[in-house]
Amino acid sequence: MSELILKDYSAGYSPGGAAVSGVSMKIAGGSVTAVIGPNGSGKSTLLKGIMSFPGVYGSGSVTLDSMDIHRMNRNERAGKIAYLPQFPPIPAGLTAVETVLLGRFPHRSAWSGDSPEDVKIALDALEMVGATHLANKFTDEISGGENRLVNLAAVLSQRTEVILLDEPGASLDYGHAAQLWKLLSDLAAGGMIILATTHRIEMSGNAFDRVLLLSEGKSVAFGEPEDVFLSGDLLSSVYKTPMEVRRSSPEGSWIVFPGEAD
């Protein structure tokens, strides 16, 4: 099973200027890890650093199955790690299925057509996110939340071992958010590594296996959700507001009460 390891990893937008630093964690395949923290704590930068995007400078190490992912060539990395940004541009002029097919790019040449297998994978991905009905609709004619599902399907069609998602639940309603986190949980159960930033702990049910808590660009805690959420007033001090986090049942969903003293 895959294993993603970050050792003393830092990332920022100028050489030596880290927006997030000192992150160390080991994530095994088959788990969903949530990256949480206040706005500006470095959640998105961490994902962008792992992806080695242009203009993002990283230090420390990130390995996938003992291979330094920053030494992989782009295509090799694209075959192993997929990424969904917070606000991807809507690729207008394309239908949903055409948009999903863009995720097959690392698996074929830059100008070749879509094979029947590519189309099948794309349609399967749309089905997985519950968006089959959108297949032939233009992406600039569907809602923001529906586009979110289509983009998620595009990421799934890339067929990678690791998926990094930046706020995947943003702009999704309760039903679709629950469906999304259930899907991520199911994918992880199949052996994948899912690393997702989120501001909405309560929208994710009990999908997280691990939680990384960031504050002001530093890693404050990493561990099982119980250890992070129920660790005294850790969340209250990080979010600078009284917070109470409970579970609906011993194995149930997480519920957050911001602004309430414990």
Partner: peptide, 25 residues
Amino acid sequence: LLKTGTLNQFLTGTEMAESRGVNTV
């Protein structure tokens, strides 16, 4: 003409294109 697939990737933005193996710069 040889880069039409890459042009499609640019439609989804720099980050998505990079994540799919395009050296965007």
